[in-house]
Nucleic acid binder design. Structure first.
Length: 112
RNA sequence: AAUGUUGGUUAGGCGAUUGCACACGAAAGUGUGAGGAAAGUCCGAGCACCAUAUGGCAGAGUGCAAGUUAACGGCUUGUUAUGGCAACAUAAAGGAAAGUGGAACAGAAAAUUACCGCCCCCAAGGGCAAGGUUGAAAAGGCGAGGUAAGAGCUCACCGCGUCACAGGUGACUGUGGCGGCAAUCCAAACCCCACUCGGUGCAAGGUUAGAGACCUGGGCUUAAACGUAGCCAGCGUGCCAGGUCCAUACACCGCGCGAGUCUAUUGGCGACAAUAGACCAAGAUAGAUAAUCGCCCUCGACAGAACUCGGCUUAACGACCAACCGUAUCA
RNA sequence: GCUUCCGUGGCGCAGCAGGUAGCGCAACGCAUUCGUAACGCGUAGGUCGGGGGUUCGAAUCCCCCCGGAAGCU
C-alpha cells in the first residue's frame, strides 16, 4: 500500500487526467499521466468491471499496488498517474506487473 | 454394509520477511483486522428527520390453529390435504345460498339444460331424466326395491350437509341422531370478510464554517404559493418561482457496548426464555486485511464489510458429526 | 445507497381483466424485365429471458432467479 501522500483521491482529478492526459499501454495495463503542480507524484489505480467480480477486481488492485511500491522513488515528480488494469492482471505474478509498469513509465519518459 | 431422510459443524493450517488500516503509546513498538452467505434488496425492526403524522377515501400487504419474538410475510409445534414402503417432505390452506364477471373448441345443454331417448296416448297434449354423445368439468356414487317410464321416491353401505354428545386452549377429530342432496368450476378474476400498514432513508440527520450578489416574472395577506404521501379535509409557514455569478465540505460527528458474543444451569416437545459468570472482537472514505518464500495436508468452492440487527432467497468444492427409516446379509 | 421499467421470428414492435402468437422490414422461391430494383404471388423461421406455482388450459396471473436500460441523491 502506498502512503497517503502519494495517493490520487478525488474523482475530479481522475476525470481531469483521463481528459487531458497522455496514454501509454501494453498487454498487461495502460498508463495515463499528466503534469501537475503538486510537489509529490500522485498515483491512482483503476479496475473496471470488465476484469471480473468484486473479489477479482480487489485482488487486481492489491497486486498493482504491491507492484508499484518499489518503483515510486524512481518516478519523476510533478506528475499525476493512473494505472488502468486490463483483463487477466490478477492472474499474473507481481514481478511481471512491476516490469510492465516500468516498461510503460520508461516509454512515457517518467523514469528519472 | 451401502443407500436414503433430517439436523448441525467447518470453510486449508503453521512459520519467516516486507507492507496497509485502526486503537493505545513520547517513541521504539504492541494489539486487532471480512462472510456463511458480507450478495440479492424480498420482508421485518432499531436509529434519524419530516407536520405531535390527525380524520376519511383511495392504495398495499397478510390469510388453517396455538405459540414464539423488539417485530415479521420469519420460526416452532400441531391440524388438514397431497406425495413417499418408510424416516419424512410440500402447501397464499378464509368466503362461490352478498354482488359482478368468465368458462375457448366440442357438446342438446357450461346453468334454472333436454338433441337422441324412455313412458302414457289415435292424436293433440303430458310425464321423465335411467341410458347415449362432447368435454378439464354435466345436477351425489353403487347395489336392491319400486314404477306406465322414471326419480333419495324408499332402503343398505359410502360421500355431503346439519344437530347433539365426548375429547382438545384451538385448528379439528371421534361417536350417534336427523336431513334427503340444497345445484359445477374459477377469488395467484373483480370483490366480500378479518387483521396490519404515515413517509423518507446514514448521501438520514447533526456540528463548525457559510448562509452572499444581480436579473426576470407573478402575488399583495380572507390570497397565491410552499411545507417530502395519490385525493379531500384539517394543520403549519407568510412572499413565491425561474435564471446567472461567487463560495463550499470529498471536513468532523453519526460509526461500533449491542434486542452483543461465549460458557454453564434451569423452564419448555420445540421455536425460545430466564439466571449466573467471563469477554469487548473491522470501522475504511479512490475505500485497509496484501506481497514474496518455506513446510504439511484431504490440494482449497461460492465469494469482499460501507449505519446496525432478525429472517427469507439465491451461489457453492468438499470434509466431518449426530439421530432416524425401510431393505439385504450375518449373529 | 435507493427506485422504476423492459426482455416475443435475423431487426423494430403488437398481442397481457387467461382459450390455436401476429404486423412491418429483412431472408428464400416464383413471376415481371434485355438485366437489376420497385410492384405482385407464395414460403420458411418462435420451448414468448430461465425455473417453479395457481388453473382443465399461462406470452398473459403469482413467486424466485438471470440479463439490460433509465432515474433519484
Amino acid at each position: 500500500m502506498l502512503s497517503k501522500q502519494y495517493r490520487l483521491k478525488k474523482r475530479k482529478s481522475f476525470n481531469y487526467i483521463y481528459k487531458k492526459g497522455k496514454h501509454v499501454g501494453n498487454e498487461t495495463l495502460a498508463l495515463v499521466f499528466v503534469a501537475a503542480k503538486m510537489k509529490h507524484i500522485k498515483i491512482g489505480f483503476s479496475v473496471s468491471k470488465k476484469v471480473g467480480n468484486s473479489v477479482t477486481r480487489h485482488k487486481a488492485t492489491r497486486k498493482m499496488r504491491a507492484a508499484c511500491r518499489p518503483l515510486v522513488p524512481m518516478i519523476k515528480e510533478n506528475h499525476s498517474i493512473i494505472f488502468v488494469a486490463k483483463e487477466g492482471v490478477e492472474k499474473k505474478h507481481v514481478t511481471e506487473i512491476t516490469q510492465a509498469m516500468a516498461n510503460t513509465l520508461r516509454r512515457a519518459g517518467l523514469m528519472s
